[in-house]
Simulated scan of single mutants.
Amino acid sequence: MKTTKRLEQALTKLYTAFHNNELNPECCKQCAVGNILDNTDSWKHLSDRHGTLELNYIGKVHETLGRRFNGYRPLELLKIENIFLKTCGYSLPLHHKNDKPENPTDKDVLFNGLNEVVKFLCYLDNVPNVMDYTKLFEFENEKPKYELEFYN
């Protein structure tokens, strides 16, 4: 499957962070967007409340100027983080009094969040969802419709 450069880079960073236990929804450098942006937290200055879809003045200026961060517009970054946090079980905006998962760094919690983030990243680049495995189970005349490819 053909992907875009920014999608490939984002997926690689998220995959690496997940498997190296460097994905943490409560850390601006280790969350989904923090990892996509090379473990920096400068993106948090695009909004006044973590997890919202509202750009602040700085975010609006960057958005209006067409600024991109590792290929993503400010509003796209906020949406990525919003999806990640929601799917991990957080009530948004992020606040110590709001609901959050019992164990935010649990692999199942993180996988659920990443699954939705990857789906959204693919949507942004008009690429079929790379996490969609349903085609593997399609059949016709009692035989698999598609061949399973293995890479060694």
Rank of each mutant, 00 (worst) to 15 (best):
residue 3 T to I: 08
residue 3 T to Q: 05
residue 10 A to K: 09
residue 11 L to T: 08
residue 13 K to Y: 03
residue 13 K to T: 06
residue 14 L to F: 03
residue 17 A to G: 07
residue 17 A to F: 08
residue 18 F to P: 01
residue 19 H to Y: 11
residue 20 N to E: 13
residue 21 N to I: 05
residue 21 N to W: 06
residue 22 E to Q: 14
residue 22 E to V: 07
residue 22 E to Y: 06
residue 26 E to Y: 14
residue 30 Q to L: 15
residue 32 A to D: 10
residue 36 I to H: 09
residue 37 L to A: 04
residue 39 N to V: 08
residue 39 N to T: 10
residue 40 T to M: 08
residue 41 D to V: 11
residue 41 D to I: 12
residue 42 S to G: 13
residue 43 W to I: 09
residue 45 H to D: 10
residue 48 D to C: 01
residue 49 R to G: 00
residue 50 H to Q: 10
residue 51 G to D: 05
residue 52 T to K: 04
residue 53 L to Y: 08
residue 55 L to C: 02
residue 55 L to I: 04
residue 58 I to P: 01
residue 59 G to K: 03
residue 60 K to L: 02
residue 63 E to T: 03
residue 63 E to D: 04
residue 65 L to A: 08
residue 67 R to C: 10
residue 68 R to P: 03
residue 70 N to M: 11
residue 71 G to H: 07
residue 71 G to L: 10
residue 74 P to G: 05
residue 78 L to Y: 11
residue 78 L to V: 07
residue 80 I to P: 12
residue 84 F to H: 15
residue 84 F to N: 12
residue 86 K to C: 13
residue 87 T to A: 14
residue 88 C to L: 11
residue 89 G to I: 06
residue 90 Y to G: 06
residue 91 S to V: 15
residue 93 P to N: 10
residue 93 P to A: 06
residue 95 H to Q: 14
residue 98 N to M: 15
residue 99 D to L: 15
residue 99 D to F: 13
residue 99 D to K: 15
residue 100 K to C: 14
residue 100 K to W: 13
residue 101 P to N: 13
residue 104 P to R: 05
residue 104 P to L: 02
residue 105 T to A: 05
residue 106 D to W: 05
residue 106 D to C: 03
residue 108 D to F: 07
residue 108 D to I: 09
residue 110 L to P: 01
residue 110 L to I: 12
residue 111 F to D: 03
residue 111 F to K: 10
residue 112 N to Y: 05
residue 113 G to N: 11
residue 114 L to P: 11
residue 116 E to N: 12
residue 119 K to S: 11
residue 119 K to E: 12
residue 120 F to H: 15
residue 122 C to G: 10
residue 124 L to F: 08
residue 125 D to A: 07
residue 125 D to L: 04
residue 125 D to C: 06
residue 127 V to N: 07
residue 129 N to T: 07
residue 129 N to K: 05
residue 129 N to V: 05
residue 129 N to S: 09
residue 130 V to T: 11
residue 130 V to K: 08
residue 131 M to Q: 05
residue 132 D to E: 07
residue 135 K to R: 06
residue 135 K to V: 01
residue 135 K to N: 04
residue 135 K to A: 04
residue 136 L to A: 05
residue 136 L to M: 06
residue 136 L to D: 05
residue 137 F to G: 03
residue 137 F to V: 02
residue 139 F to W: 02
residue 142 E to F: 02
residue 142 E to W: 00
residue 142 E to G: 00
residue 142 E to R: 03
residue 143 K to D: 01
residue 143 K to Y: 00
residue 144 P to L: 00
residue 145 K to W: 00
residue 146 Y to V: 01
residue 146 Y to M: 00
residue 146 Y to I: 00
residue 148 L to R: 02
residue 149 E to H: 02
residue 150 F to R: 01
residue 150 F to T: 02
residue 152 N to G: 00
